[in-house]
Design a protein around this nucleic acid. Structure first.
Lengths: 243, 243
DNA sequence: TGCCATACTTACGTCGCCGTAGGTTACGGA
DNA sequence: TCCGTAACCTACGGCGACGTAAGTATGGCA
């Protein structure tokens, strides 16, 4: 039996939530409390609710995957009933699509803006940093992107959405290859290799969190640039970053 | 309504199937044919059926994932009814567990046996080759391992089963690091990076299949060993391989 | 003060799928 | 030829999840 406990505490995660908590005559909103009459229902604007649902959905999709997450659960965590979700997104796939789209955009923006101008090595450094940044600030999103989406499976060209990033790297690498007189047809492969290197290391870093982000980036660049044969013992970053 | 169409043609994929097809008075076993009376039922030994189910399960899990695959479908493709699956594996998870276990063993065997003796660069070369070999000969298995399993999610340390391979590489790398006077604590990270490089490239190679396997390996080694700064235009493999 | 759009609800219908209880067929040895 | 056992079946119970139809509160605005 689902008791309408209203807010679950995470109403403001989206940032733009101006918390329309009005006359909260309720029993303190304490979690787990049995219905001390009936908690005053929370009423958000469409936008607010939409953002909240996206936020919750992202979290749940990240930890349970698409199929493992139910609309009921999303709605329940938001303190509303199922039809609200259907009203906003038309269904589970709709919500998922928006979540994935946003994450893709964010990641692509970060990476592409990192891939502008400068020495190739610096580019590499910045790109690696960008991906680690993204992983750190939007862990759930990264988890979702790493998982294979139902969409990716149907379109079928790439197994993982992360691979799309590689196509960004291709161009830069292709240019560099041409200048050096290498076969530019090989650029995609090398791009995949580089992205794979950073992505899997990032995934691993999610669990361990041991070396600092900057150190991880430095070592990744070290490996990618110098190779195992010419590894520097104590690699340093060239770029100057605030974070 | 499920029509019992008996064999679906893939009975012998497991290799050890001695095809106990007896009096196949049936209507040629042609696919898609409406029940021309009722196809003569096929009766396998326990072992045969078990192998067949594992084989079918592997295929389906690879293309639809664990949750996306139903026991009914597996049974149907095998030309039997559901309880047979339950008889053999106790349920979907049981079957899945066996499939994953076998694949893990196979991959680990291949990789570890490739990681014995020789110059580090040669080791790298052989390991890369081993992974590509595995991907080629057991594509479905690789797809399953790349996906996140329900098991991996509960134990939680690693997001992807592929990452387990990296722990194998750690030791070798750690030794090498010590000899060179590097911080051996960094070995895990570099291992992850290397495995990620090869794994994602392999995944990409699954779809494209453009450069030959040996070429892919050569270029991977090229990148990992020489780094972007010292890339050779036409890398060659050291080792001598028959395949 | 009364109205109406917006936010939200309860209550179903339905479908797919897991897992099991109990019965049936065929193979192979005595 | 008979019989036991291994292989297999039909049929059901039940649950969880998607999606919808129809009704209810609430807050701004004429």
């Amino acid at each position: 039996m689902i008791v309408p406990v209203a807010i679950d505490g995470r109403a403001g995660t989206a940032g733009s939530t101006s918390a329309t908590a009005r006359k909260s005559k309720a029993s303190q909103g304490a979690p787990g409390a049995p219905p001390a009459r009936r908690t005053r229902r929370v009423r958000m604007t469409g936008k607010e609710r939409r953002e909240q649902l996206l936020d919750i959905g992202r979290t749940l999709f990240a930890e349970r995957g698409f199929e493992g997450t139910s609309v009921e659960e999303i709605a329940h965590k938001a303190g509303v009933s199922k039809p609200v979700v259907y009203e906003h997104f038309g269904g589970k796939e709709g919500l998922y699509a928006v979540v994935v789209d946003r994450e893709m955009r964010m990641l692509l923006d970060l990476v592409t803006s990192a891939l502008t101008g400068g020495h190739p090595r610096e580019l590499l450094e910045q790109a690696a940093f960008a991906l680690l940044d993204y992983i750190e600030q939007s862990t759930d999103g990264f988890r979702i992107l790493v998982r294979d989406s139902p969409v990716a499976q149907s379109t079928g060209t790439f197994a993982s959405l992360i691979s799309d990033i590689a196509t960004q790297v291709e161009d830069i690498l292709g240019l560099e290859f041409k200048q050096r007189g290498f076969e530019p047809k090989l650029a995609p492969m090398y791009a995949q290799a580089l992205v794979g290197m950073v992505a899997l290391t990032g995934q691993w870093w999610l669990d361990v969190r041991k070396p600092k982000k900057a150190d991880v980036a430095a070592h990744l660049v070290n490996l990618a640039w110098n190779g195992l044969s010419g590894l520097e013992p104590k690699p340093r970053l060239i770029g100057h970053r605030k974070a």
